[in-house]
Each structure stands twice: as C-alpha cells, then as structure tokens.
C-alpha cells in the first residue's frame, strides 16, 4: 500500500497527464454525442457574446462588399417579382413551399480551413431556431443547425465531412450524396451517380428535397469535372460550390412547417413496420 502511494506521488504528473489526455480524446471521439458536450461549443452565452463582438468589428471593414451583394440580390428579386406579375396569379398552383419561413441570421463565426468546419449564428431558440433546420444564403446551401442556445446557434457547414447533403443533377434528376472533399473550400464531390447518366461540366447540382432539411431545388453548385471512380460502379463528379464560404455574412435559416407534418406521417409508417 505504501509502495503504491509512493508510486502515485512520484509519478503524479505523468498520471495526471494521461488522465487529461484521455479526457481530451474522449471529447474528440464523443463529439457526435451533442447532448453530453452541450456547453463545449460556441453557441454558449459567453463564447457567443465574444464572437458577436468580433464579428461587429469585422463587419465594419466589409460594409462596401455587403452593400453590393445586397443590391444585386435586391435587383434579382425585383426581376423575379416583375416576371411573376406577368403571369395570371389565379393559375398558380398552391405550393407546399409557401409554408416555409426564413429566419435571417448573421454569421458571427466561421471557418474554412479546419478539417471540421462550423458556423456560429446570432439566432437561437428565442427566434424559433431548432436543431436540424437547414441554412442557406443568396448563393446556395450553407449548412445545417446542430446546436441551439437561447440567443445563438451553431451549424455544420457544407465544409464538414461529418455531413452529406442529398443532391441531385438538374438535367437528369439523378440523385446522390454530396460530400466535402476536405481540402479546398470551393470543391465537393457528388457520389453514387451511375455511369449511364450523362453528366457535363457546368451542369447544375441542387438539393433533392428527399431529406427534411432542405426543400427541393436550392442551388449547391456546378459540375467542374467528371471522371472515373476508383474501382466502383459510380462516376467521380467534382462540384464547385456556389456558396463562397470565405465570404459569408448573412444567411437564412429555413423553418419549414411541412417538415413537422412530414415527420409525423413518416414516424407513423415506421412504427407500423
């Protein structure tokens, strides 16, 4: 017993070192278990406040570019409005998408150079944000909400290998999972498109609408390279992302009323099986 105590005292720093390393590694491995490490992410109050201050300072230097962006978006929307007016409104079908609400949010923290990139937004449960809501911006898909606090939320960005988007090719309607490649913040890879499908460069890739996160048809990017996959039955398709993650300031969180209903009915079917 005495020997054991001596041993512990003598090597206490080594034992402490091992303990702390094991604790850190557990955090890394367990990260997907969001409930347990709730407080260890940037949507908590203190981190959120600090990051939002930092982003206020950064905004100041970006005003000009943001203005230009908003002006272009405005112009595009006005254009769409004009073309809508020319149609007969009575003949427009009622789309289920009209049950969709967008919550505008500001990006207060963002990274593109890590292996797992996350975005922190200045909207939280108080504004109606819930986990699993999709995030988009004027240019295309951005990410999906994973953690929500009262005033802030964090989202997985497309630039995160922990997440794949269900994507489809506009021209052929074939769909497959789209995943970030891990290096360039501009490129992702579209998988599981069989060889008989003709894919060309510049083809548009959009969300498929099969998942609950995004409605159908939100732009993800354009095909830049089509090649042979290594030893499997699918093509290797590289997609240039339409969203510039280096330059991301204002986004919209998609709050879909259809989802709740869809989930309910899907749960019902699964329960019967």
């Amino acid at each position: 017993m005495k020997n054991l105590l001596n041993f512990l005292v003598r090597f206490h720093h080594f034992i402490l070192f091992i303990l702390l390393e094991v604790l850190s590694l557990t955090f890394i491995v367990k990260y997907n278990n969001f409930q347990r490490v709730r407080f260890l992410n940037s949507s908590n109050a203190i981190a959120g406040d600090v990051l939002s201050e930092v982003s206020n300072v950064k905004d100041f230097f970006n005003l000009r570019r943001q203005n230009e962006k908003l002006a272009t978006e405005n112009a595009n929307l006005r254009g769409e409005l004009l073309s809508m007016r020319e149609r007969d409104f009575n003949q427009l079908p009622i789309r289920s998408d009209s049950l969709m609400k967008l919550i505008p949010a500001k990006v207060i923290n963002n990274s593109v150079n890590k292996q797992y990139n996350y975005i922190t937004l200045n909207r939280g449960s108080r504004h109606g944000v819930r986990p699993d809501m999709g995030v988009m911006c004027a240019d295309g898909v951005v990410g999906v909400i994973v953690n929500v606090s009262q005033n802030y939320s964090t989202a997985l960005s497309v630039l995160n290998p922990r997440w794949t988007i269900n994507a489809k090719l506009v021209n052929s309607n074939h769909f497959g999972p789209l995943k970030w490649e891990g290096n360039s913040p501009y490129l992702a890879q579209l998988n599981e498109i069989p060889y008989h499908v003709e894919v060309h460069e510049e083809d548009e890739v959009v969300t498929s609408g099969y998942s609950d996160i995004f409605p159908e048809g939100i732009l993800i990017g354009r095909v830049v390279k089509v090649g042979q996959g290594k030893g499997n039955n699918y093509q290797e398709i590289k997609v240039q992302l339409s969203t510039d993650f280096n330059n991301l300031y204002y986004v919209d969180i998609i709050q879909s009323m259809v989802n709740v209903e869809k989930k309910q009915i899907e749960n019902l079917t699964e329960g019967e099986e």
Partner: peptide, 28 residues
C-alpha cells in the same frame, strides 16, 4: 508545479476549443 502546468494547459486548450467547436483537439 507540474500538475498546475498540466491543468493550466488543459484549461487553455479547452477555452480555445469552445470557440472553435473542436472539443478536445486543442486541449489534448
């Protein structure tokens, strides 16, 4: 003291981790 050094190192790493959403990586 060595134990204090280790604990401070852990505290520093975990603080950075909280801001970058990478629990454990900087701490380790």
């Amino acid at each position: 003291p060595h134990y204090l050094l280790l604990l401070l190192g852990f505290a520093l790493g975990i603080s950075i981790d909280i801001f970058t959403n990478t629990p454990g990586i900087h701490a380790s």
